[in-house]
Design a protein around this nucleic acid. Structure first.
Lengths: 341, 341
DNA sequence: ATTGTATTGTTTACCCATACAATAAGCTAT
DNA sequence: ATAGCTTATTGTATGGGTAAACAATACAAT
């Protein structure tokens, strides 16, 4: 079934040429005559040598063609998140075109040390749960790029979250409305809860902060005040957490008539809860989402939300990484005004 | 920001011990005294040596802690498929527990040659589009395991698709019903179409064949005949392809009153089309799915389907791979009788 | 004092290939 | 024929580390 793998040396011996020549035949066509090169490749094919050992190449060349995608959370969580998996889609498309491979790296891992020596670069999607991880990545000399968050020293790809949140809130909120916000990762709590006076987590540039700022700016302009009692914290964009928050909002007194949600998943859960409880949307309750996932278009009523192209984000991020771009990229977004307003 | 990376040799020189000792301090605690080991590790920490270079370790040890997950299709497609991404969830959970890393590998790639030298093993999820790929993997001496398909020479993880299909069909089909089947990857066509007399693709053990066999057995037992005109081919479990097939079925004459779908995605598209067209489910149309995805529980009416735990499948596959299990694993399934029957 | 046995640390060969300098061969111009 | 220049090929140092064989030391038992 399997003979012990041939090495470059074996082959060189067998063909009576130097190892350098075999290596050149595979890697640097300009270093030898075309005739000999073809001859060598043909012979290799015949004896079953499929090319230089990749592990050795990684060591010698210092390049593996592997790009690590560092996710905000666990892999398990990420692949089931429609926004994140769409992002991966974009990334993988570009990587495949460029002959690169994709290593998924959980953002709650202890350290990147066990891959940093061989991966060609890092794409960091969303602030890793483990802050140390982000720090480690900055320290490295490997190319790296961040998406949906910023960290001093690395280029980033993002939309203007503050502006996007402002614009959608602007569409949703009317003077005199009673507004609640269902936020993502606002405070340091593993469970869904109202924010109250808890200190906000994450840097000021985190997307949640930016979105919150945008929401508040829009409300403020309409003369609507939002007390932190009416801001909910949801630990991750998970349906169950979202559902719990949704129920709390709907059962709170007085019930808000407008709810700004920091993700479509959250908004859809809220929508479903509201319908189940017999509320009329948008008459009794206006809802906005964020992201523009496909599912949000299929619901009845369909969701009003901020659409950003996660696929494009992935493509841009991967391209920028491979090109070693140093500048931040600001992507566009657009509002989708659906039937929940 | 970054000093040139320290090597084991540098450190050995600096600490005045041999490289082997430093290596042992990191890898084989039993090879030196605890005191010295701690001293060395402390010193390393102090001078900023974080441990042996992983690229070199991969070459020398012949092990990388990277497992390649070879997907049936492109990565882009796979991550957006609920079944596949749930599977990844299971795989990644186990790998992370074991300190392994996950490399996503597209099943339509040209070859595995560019990773085979360094990955520790392969998990093949669904028959790769590129048949050569599967062949290559069998040829390797690396551990490998297949999921949702079989290939001579590799252990597999699967459910009894024939029996599962038989049982759900058995619940759905009554004597005198007019039954259609919406099948997945049955023939060699890139578009949705009726099967007619086209030759079936894939081996006899492919899940689609097994499911088809199960459906037909159940129908046959009820005295229901299904002509191949009433079997549709859908090239992949994609919503658009599914929708197209759904429409064709609903507009065909005479319209079937029972449709057996080889995936929940297909079934849900059919359900939505049917409702949109004003049909009553299940009065006018009975529908069965396959897989048991979450979304199928949330629809109204919710779907009758075969539930298999993709997470578990992933866990089992990863575990079996790491344990180098050689036996096939047959997982259980269960019927969920929802409101579409 | 001598031998035997653990324990600890070092030497050395090896993992597999690539980059670069050096050599050899072929050719032109004088 | 010789110097000078290309082009094709090879020798060798290097990438960073590990495993197995080996040497050295410490200590107990004889």
């Amino acid at each position: 079934m399997k003979k012990d793998k041939l090495t470059l040396k074996d082959v060189a011996l067998r063909l009576g040429v130097s190892t350098a020549t075999i290596s050149n035949a595979f890697n640097r066509p300009d270093q030898l005559s075309a005739a000999r090169r073809e001859d060598i490749l043909a012979q290799c094919e015949k004896i079953g040598y499929t090319g230089p050992n990749k592990a050795a190449q990684i060591l010698r060349k210092g390049r593996s063609n592997i790009v690590a995608l560092v996710l905000a959370d666990s892999i398990a969580y990420t692949v089931s998140d429609p926004v994140a998996s769409t992002f991966i889609k974009g990334v993988s498309k570009v990587l495949q075109q460029q002959g690169k491979h994709l290593l998924l790296y959980a953002g709650d891992s202890a350290s990147i040390l066990d891959v940093v020596d061989f991966v060609d670069g890092f794409i960091c999607y969303g602030a890793p749960k483990n802050h140390k991880l982000a720090q480690e990545i900055v320290q490295q000399s490997k190319p790296a790029i961040t998406v949906d968050f910023n960290i001093e020293g690395l280029p980033s790809v993002n939309i203007d979250n503050e502006q996007a949140a402002y614009e959608i809130a602007n569409q949703a909120v009317k003077g005199g409305d009673h507004v609640a916000i269902l936020g993502l990762r606002l405070i340091d709590s593993p469970t869904t809860c109202r924010v109250y006076d808890s200190p906000l987590i994450g840097s000021d540039s985190s997307i949640s902060h930016r979105r919150l700022d945008g929401y508040l700016r829009a409300c403020s302009e309409k003369g609507v005040n939002i007390d932190s009692d009416w801001i909910w914290h949801i630990p991750e964009s998970d349906r169950n957490f979202a559902k719990q928050a949704a129920k709390e909002v709907l059962h709170s007194h007085p019930r808000p008539n407008t709810v700004l949600c920091m993700s479509d998943i959250i908004a859809l859960e809220l929508l479903q809860c509201a319908l189940t409880e017999g509320l009329e949307v948008p008459q009794d309750l206006k809802i906005t989402g964020f992201d523009g996932i496909e599912e949000a278009e299929r619901t009845r009523p369909n969701l009003s939300t901020v659409c950003q192209s996660s696929v494009q984000k992935g493509e841009i991020a991967a391209t920028a990484l491979l090109d070693a771009t140093q500048d931040d990229t600001l992507l566009s977004f657009e509002l989708k005004l659906g039937e929940t307003l």
